[in-house]
């Protein structure tokens, strides 16, 4: 199958897939012809756009706007109409600290712990993610035998569900797990890695890199392969040293892709939740509690749930994400690449 559809297989595959749908689609045609007579071409455009816009409106735009209203209300009631207006109290509560560098001095100490954890996570994970995927992309861009196999290998975990990823690594990192088995061979005693505050955080970083590295590698590899080969040939003719070739040719030409990847990684890192939640549950203690989990637990999971506080926290997080996304769109425009989300 080809992506561009120039091949003959594309339409034919489509035709077979369409076969059962054809009859139904045909039935719809007669009423829609009448609609077209009345509504005209512009009306038909609206008709085609409507279902998508409706779903967008109800499930994305509406929640987006009422989120602000939520963040201004208090209590544990679910529906806005049952909630009392409290103004900026929720925000005030989030920012109520005697010392901003010490989460324990804050009224909402778990929020600041989550912020701190997320901050450290972003710094570590983004740096390492970029390093690993760049090195992998550079290696895959070499003249390798079976390159598509190696590329697929690094991509494999990307498709796995976060729950599966979390469980696989939970199983490996537990006391009787594979990691301890390996270290045992070198004379180490088994250790419960996920019960250790530092190691569980390190595991969260490592596992999220393991799971998503292949995706960014792929984008960077595409960027590397778009660099014209004759540039390298010209450099070789000039006898340029390989480190210099990398710094003066590869890196500058890869920069647009690299910037897009950096922002994408940043955006995803700020939202880290699924795999870490399954892996550590945020623990031990609050050592791997991140922002999304804080919002989730404040809004839904705890006995004393406080949707207003969760909404306020999510808006603060949203502000960060909007800034990052705008940066990305700006970069995307200049590099002609488009980044998406689930």
């Amino acid at each position: 199958m080809t992506i561009d559809g120039s091949g003959k297989t594309g339409p034919r595959v489509g035709e077979i897939a369409m076969a059962p749908v054809r009859f139904a689609m045909g039935l719809v045609d007669a009423p829609l012809r009448k609609l077209q007579k009345v509504a005209g071409l512009g009306g038909m455009a609206t008709f085609f756009l409507l279902p998508n816009m409706l779903i967008f409106g109800i499930f994305v735009l509406l929640p987006f706007f009422i989120n602000f209203a939520y963040s201004m209300t208090g209590g544990s009631a679910l529906f806005l109409s049952d909630r009392s207006f409290v103004g900026v109290d929720q925000y005030a509560r989030l920012f109520d600290c005697s010392n901003y560098l010490d989460p324990n001095s804050c009224a909402e100490d778990t929020f600041w712990t989550a912020v701190g954890n997320t901050g450290w996570f972003v710094v570590l994970q983004v740096t390492l993610m970029i390093a690993f995927s760049l090195v992998t992309a550079l290696i895959l861009n070499r003249d390798l035998k079976a390159r598509s196999f190696w590329r697929a290998m690094f991509f494999f975990p990307v498709l796995l569900s976060p729950v599966v990823v979390g469980l696989i690594w939970k199983w490996i990192l537990q006391r009787q797990g594979l990691l301890n088995f390996g270290l045992y061979g070198f004379g180490f005693d088994p250790y419960a890695w996920l019960n250790d505050r530092t190691w569980s955080f390190a595991a969260a970083v490592a596992v999220s890199i393991w799971a998503h590295m292949g995706f960014y590698t792929l984008i960077l590899l595409a960027g590397l392969q778009a660099i014209p080969k004759d540039l390298y040939e010209a450099a070789e003719m000039d006898g340029t040293r390989s480190m210099r070739v990398f710094m003066r040719i590869t890196l500058p030409l890869l920069m647009p892709n690299l910037l897009v990847v950096i922002v994408l990684v940043l955006i995803r890192a700020v939202q880290i939740f699924d795999e870490v939640y399954v892996l550590t549950g945020g623990g031990p203690g609050t050592s791997t509690l991140f922002l999304t989990q804080y919002i989730y637990e404040t809004g839904f999971a705890t006995q004393l749930r406080n949707p207003g506080l969760a909404a306020a926290a999510s808006i603060l997080m949203g502000v960060v994400l909007v800034v990052l996304t705008l940066v990305q769109l700006g970069l995307g425009r200049s590099s002609d690449k488009n980044g998406g989300r689930k």
């Binding site: 816009m53 997080m317 996304t325």
Partner: peptide
């Protein structure tokens, strides 16, 4: 509008979305 929704991930709107659902 469609592109803008890229900026609104689930983790940002989960509280109100839950109430709408």
């Amino acid at each position: 509008v469609i592109l803008a929704t890229l900026m609104v991930p689930l983790s940002v709107i989960m509280v109100p979305l839950y109430s709408i659902v």
